[in-house]
Design a protein around this nucleic acid. Sequence first.
DNA 1: CATAAATATTGACAGTCATCAATATAATAA
DNA 2: TTATTATATTGATGACTGTCAATATTTATG
Lengths: 109, 109
Amino acid sequence: MVKNNDYDKVVEIFKALSEPMRIKILDVVSCRELCACEILECLSISQSTLSHHMKVLISCDLVIGRKEATWMYYSINKETIANIHNILDIITSKKSNCVCNVQRKNCKK
Amino acid sequence: MVKNNDYDKVVEIFKALSEPMRIKILDVVSCRELCACEILECLSISQSTLSHHMKVLISCDLVIGRKEATWMYYSINKETIANIHNILDIITSKKSNCVCNVQRKNCKK
DNA sequence: CATAAATATTGACAGTCATCAATATAATAA
DNA sequence: TTATTATATTGATGACTGTCAATATTTATG
């Protein structure tokens, strides 16, 4: 069974990934480090919407942001991707001390 | 670059995973096949809410549902979990033919 | 200082969704 | 048939969120 604070972190990441435009952004940013205006040219959204999405992706550590002069450069955070793989493995594997082993009270089965 | 219909499928899965209660359900169901009333005892939600979440998890193939008499048995679908790992690898890896390589028009950088 | 370029923030709005109580359906047992 | 158990559906509600235009901020340049 996963700890509650681990749930919070992974849910935040999955929430970030559950938006088509953000998946697209992650896909593009995985190629190489790009500035916001370059990403914007690949997509059909307004500048403010892109800025909002980048904030979400950064806040859950999926993307790393780096400021240089007036530009913001974005790149994928491989460490967080590895964490997703790991936590997904933990969540979807068998547990010996699972809460499902508690005594069933209301279930007449 | 990932195809658009692949995006749709993976976004649907991530949307299912972006809800704390559904992650918890997936965690519990990964232990062994359980009926709805057993899952219900592990959680603090109403029966109708659980039914709704199971429908979401089944519709994106994260969970397999099996009816036996009046009971519904749920188990994790390992195949979909493997697909998540694969598509995540594709999304977060370098691409030679990325859309980010197109000529930049408006960016003055 | 004034202008321009890149990005961030704000406020509004429409759409989505998690939740529940109430009810319906399905299957079994008396 | 009637009652009971397990699960699904419906309808309502409050909360959240993606989107945009407008505006603000930051940085460099003339």
